[in-house]
Design a binder for these strands. Structure first.
Length: 428
RNA sequence: GACCCCAUCGUCUAGCCUGGUUAGGACAAGAGCUUUUCAAGCUCUCGACACGGGUUCAAAUCCCGUUGGGGUCACCA
């Protein structure tokens, strides 16, 4: 049975690269009907923090990467010590004070990597003796890693490229301990736009940052997947259930990929467009409240109509409160462009006439509004745009946004009246 | 520096294994359509096999080298 693991260290957030490694492990387990083990590598007690642990667990859950088993290395120190003693007793390791050090014998190591055609060759003569147990009695990464991967029956080690040079160090330990050597698959790194590792300088690195910026987990997963694997047949958008049917770690790319926020945004926009308005609203609501929009004061029909109005034009959830605020606040604030529109001319007569027409409407729907609006402008002998722009500015405070007639239908007669009246000299 | 990995449009990639394609798609960019704005959508355009040698009738594809990029060289993980 396939058993894979993701082994983060709680000394930082779960970042984009870690998220992709976790995703590929999880996918391989799900594709092969295996198990996905999560192992927290918290052997560095000083640097490990509870807040990072929580953040990592939350991010994995948010991405939908559920684990089957969970282990903490900090609870397994006795096990590591036991195996180190064994190597000591066998004469394969020696002591240096309280530390236990493995004597590396010169040999040629060949590593078969699932995503590379040729085996990778190393000469261990170039490797120093390896510390197993440090002076403070905690195990080193390579030692704890090997013990755990073996005891947890990990069959495939899928990890970042940056671990390639750790692999020979680990293989000598597998051999010395008499453990079977698992399969390896080293994923290429994700690079920042500047080349080199993705770093905070290049942009957000934490999965939680993308959550906060309004990306959907499915969209981020879809993007991360494309960064190193292709469904073929020119497909860009793919449901995770479909991926599980065709995923194999052997098909992972071996070239490093540059993180491209533009494409992520596009994918996110596609997922937002496809989402059910109700579900989208569940995600939007907390963001609106956070921005101080009193959305609880409105009924759900109103809210869903607004969601539908913006669903096609936002690319992140965070765009929503910014674009739609005028639906939720009475005293809207004009942008400087909107102000310019309204200051350009006195629209008292036009606004007044428009309100009269709207008042006479039997049905206050988009189509009726548009018909009466177009009739009015033709009677006034002006182009539609000449009235559309000032009305939009007065109603929304903005010069950009959804179609005017659609937003008027949603906004409702009362709000329209109140907002246009403000610009009619001498009142109605 | 030593060791290791990698190399197709600006970016992500298909094609490479099993040589014969007008080297395909997506994002971005540019143009147009639509139109009340901004988006979206649709149509079109731009744009790549890093270089040099082989092997072969034929090389993006196989081999070697060069160059370039990246990674690792901790009692961090």
């Amino acid at each position: 049975m396939v058993r894979v693991r993701f082994a983060p260290s709680p000394t930082g957030n779960l970042h984009i690269g870690g998220g992709r490694t976790a995703l590929f492990n999880w996918l391989y387990a799900r594709a092969k009907g295996g198990k996905f083990v999560l192992r927290i590598e918290d052997t560095d007690v000083a640097r490990s923090k509870k807040e990072y642990l929580d953040e990592i667990l939350n991010s994995l859950s948010w991405l939908g990467l559920t684990w089957d088993e969970l282990y903490y290395q900090s609870q397994r120190f006795e096990i590591y010590k036991e195996y180190a003693q064994k190597l000591l007793a066998q004469g394969l390791a020696y002591q240096e004070g309280p530390a236990i050090i493995f004597k590396v014998q010169p040999e040629k190591i060949r590593i078969n990597d699932l995503i590379r055609q040729e085996p990778i060759e190393f000469d261990t003569a170039l490797i120093k003796d390896q510390v197993l147990i440090k002076s403070d009695l905690s195990p080193t990464y390579n030692f704890a890693c090997v013990i755990d991967d073996a005891l947890m029956n990990i069959t495939h080690i899928i990890r970042g490229d940056d671990h390639i040079s750790n692999t020979p160090k680990q293989i000598v330990l597998y051999q010395a301990l008499g453990f079977p050597i698992p399969e390896f698959a080293h994923l290429p790194l994700i690079l920042g736009t500047e080349g080199g590792r993705l770093s905070k300088r290049t942009g957000a690195t934490a999965i939680s940052d993308y959550r906060a910026m309004g990306y959907l987990p499915q969209a981020l997963v879809n993007y991360l997947l494309l960064l190193g694997w292709s469904p073929g047949e020119n497909q860009e958008l793919i449901a995770i259930s479909e991926v599980i049917k065709k995923f194999d770690i052997k098909d992972a790319n071996k070239t490093a990929a540059t993180f491209d926020l533009e494409k992520l945004r596009w994918i996110n926009a596609q997922y937002i467009k496809k989402a059910a308005p109700q579900e989208l609203w569940e995600m939007l609501k907390p963001l609106c409240l956070e921005k101080g929009l009193q959305v609880n004061n409105f009924d759900s029909n109103y809210l869903l109509s607004i969601v539908k109005l913006f669903q096609e034009r936002i690319s992140t959830l965070a765009d929503f409160p910014e674009y739609s605020d005028f639906f939720f606040i009475e005293e809207i604030v004009l942008t400087s462009e909107a102000k310019k529109r309204l200051d350009a001319k006195d629209y008292s007569r036009e606004f007044k006439l428009l309100l009269e027409r709207l008042d006479g409407l039997e049905h206050f729907d988009c189509l009726s509004i548009e018909n009466s609006f177009r009739l009015l402008v033709s009677e006034l002998n002006i182009k539609a745009g000449e009235l559309v722009h000032p009305v939009r500015s007065a109603l929304t405070g903005k010069t950009i946004g959804p179609g005017l007639f659609e937003l008027m239908e949603v906004l409702g007669k009362k709000r329209i009246e109140a907002r246009l009246t403000k610009y009619i000299k001498g009142g109605v």
